[in-house]
Nucleic acid binder design. Structure first.
Length: 493
RNA sequence: GGCGGCAUAGCCAAGUGGCUAAGGCAGCGGUCUGCAAAACCGUUAUUCACCGGUUCGAGUCCGGUUGCCGCCUCCA
């Protein structure tokens, strides 16, 4: 089965056919290293991480490039403000970024080049554009002449005439056309610079991606991705630069992820409602964050709120509760059943067939434009089967049951690995989750446990009134108790 | 002003021409439990913003209306 994906360039869902059979080259625009990453970066990272892992799961030999922009106005501004150089600023935020990604369980790309490592290539590319008459020089700045590139606007679906009609940009007298964009910028006093045929200067923003994608993936490659805000002008300009220079098609498929809103508002620095990845991870388990993101199709916007996160947490718990049930039934052993599939019959056989085909359904969903919400739905279907199949308290499960449960766990792990979910030991997951909730709510754990202990004694004395009173007291603080024959455990609702 | 997207149950969210409109959360009834919790079973949209059209057949295609949103400036 082949993957079908929505291509921003054609505005259609298309069959994914790699340029070279079995191989995939993917380039995703990374961050500008001038500030800590927010939840929007997390979404983009998680979405493309899952696409990367899925294509790998499908057996493709994949080269995944995600760049760092380490020279730009904002970085320069920050360096000047702090009296340091751009290298130090970039280094700091790249390190922070990598830390955030590691915590989110985002795999490192095959290559993570920095713009400043490819300055020579950028100069060469700009020279080619000059030779082809696609660029012009004004006072040491080099501009791209959009009118000279006939395909300009094909990605964002607008013509230059449309853009002119609705132009809202400042007229810059240096430019021949208001949509011309800078390829090379002359440096002002105190700014970093590189020498070039046009004098001391630095690259414009778009040129780096044209150069680094070409360097790692060639003139034409399979997939180019990024946030939807990059469609115009960034990706449009990349196409103009690359196709203008090589005369060949640039990326074959373009994938763009949707934005995150916060409490139904657009997240932006001016509104002051940005949430950093660090803040989110202090409050929620990384897998809850991934689950929250993957619960919606990557192209739609997501509305972040505490309520939505609480729901995501609830969903995660459902899966981990089932995994815990399996673990308890297996008695902690990894491989306790030495049966094989053909030894199964009746109920065991039926359950096995349902559970064992999870990866097939998962693949169907993912092949359909990476439909992670549907993929998660199939995982929940599997969870229901497991829960209904788990031995009741105290019952001794038979060999067939163990075999099925073991397989169920394997299959959930198999697809979970692609999504970056359900990879923890259930006990660890619950412990970490609980610690976060406790610290978030400022609960006094010792007092909680003292009350539980008091309730235990009341229960032993069959003083149900006092036992219930304590439970209600704890419930008022969001603590839910669970009595098992052996002990009482508690969790945050 | 230009370009584009979305509207599915109380909430979140799949489904893009055809079996009974996935799944999660919340609710209700039952089983289990000292009572709960978790889990399971059942239940919760004759209907997919509205109006018209195409079709044997539409949530799904086309046209219109209304409402929300994004991009056009740095932005994931």
């Amino acid at each position: 089965m082949t993957v079908r994906l929505y291509n921003t360039l054609t505005k259609k869902r298309e069959e994914f056919i790699p340029i070279e059979e079995g191989k995939v080259g993917i380039y995703v625009c990374g961050i500008t290293a001038y500030d800590v990453c927010h939840i929007g970066h997390a979404r983009s990272a998680v979405v493309f991480d899952v696409i990367y892992r899925y294509l790998k799961y499908k057996g493709y030999d994949i080269t995944y490039v995600k760049n760092f922009t380490d020279v730009d106005d904002k970085i320069i501004g920050k360096a000047i403000a702090e009296g340091t150089d751009i290298g130090e600023i970039a280094e700091r935020y790249i390190r922070e970024h990598n830390e955030d990604m590691d915590r989110l369980g985002v795999a490192r790309p095959t290559a993570a080049p920095r713009a400043t490592e490819s300055i020579k290539g950028m100069i060469r590319l700009i020279e080619t554009l000059m030779e082809k008459g696609l660029a012009y020089v004004v006072d040491g700045d080099v501009y791209y002449s959009v009118e000279k590139f006939s395909g300009y606007g094909k990605l964002s679906g607008r013509s230059l005439d449309d853009m002119m009609a609705g132009a809202r940009i400042d007229i810059d007298e240096k430019k021949k056309n208001p949509f011309d964009f800078v390829l090379w910028k002359s440096s002002k006093e105190g700014e970093p610079w590189w020498s070039s045929p046009w004098g001391k200067g630095r690259p414009g923003w778009h040129i780096e991606c044209s150069v680094m994608s070409q360097r790692f993936l060639g003139d034409t490659f399979d997939i180019h991705g990024g946030g939807e805000d990059l469609i115009f002008p960034h990706h449009e300009n990349e196409i103009a630069q690359s196709e203008g220079a090589t005369g060949k098609p640039f990326a074959k498929y373009w994938i763009h992820n949707g934005f995150i809103k916060i409490d139904s508002e657009k997240m932006s620095k001016s509104l002051g409602n940005t949430l950093t990845i660090k803040e989110i991870l202090d409050a929620y388990h990384p897998e809850v964050v991934r689950f929250f993101i993957l619960q919606r199709h990557y192209k739609s916007y997501i509305d972040f709120s505490d309520g939505a996160m609480a729901e995501a947490r609830g969903g995660m718990e459902r899966v981990y509760t089932a995994l815990k049930g399996i673990k308890d039934a297996l008695g902690g052993g990894e491989s306790v059943s030495d049966l094989s599939e053909k030894d199964l019959s009746g109920e065991d056989k039926t359950a096995f067939e349902k559970v064992h085909t999870l990866p097939v359904r998962f693949t169907e969903a993912m092949d359909d434009d990476f439909n992670t919400p549907m993929a998660l739905g199939y995982i929940f279907d599997t969870v229901r089967i497991i829960n209904g199949y788990l031995p009741r308290d105290g019952a001794q499960p038979g060999g067939g049951t163990l075999f099925v449960l073991q397989d169920a766990r394997e299959r959930i792990r198999e697809v979970g690995k692609v999504l970056g979910l359900f990879l923890e030991e259930p006990d660890d997951y619950f412990t970490k989750s609980q610690e976060r909730e406790v610290s978030k709510r400022g609960l006094d754990v010792e007092e909680v446990e003292r009350l539980i202990d008091e309730r235990k004694q009341a229960r032993e004395a069959k003083n149900w009134a006092r036992a219930d009173e304590i439970r209600d007291l704890l419930a008022a603080r969001g603590i839910v108790l669970k009595d098992t024959p052996a002990s009482t455990t508690w969790k945050i609702e």
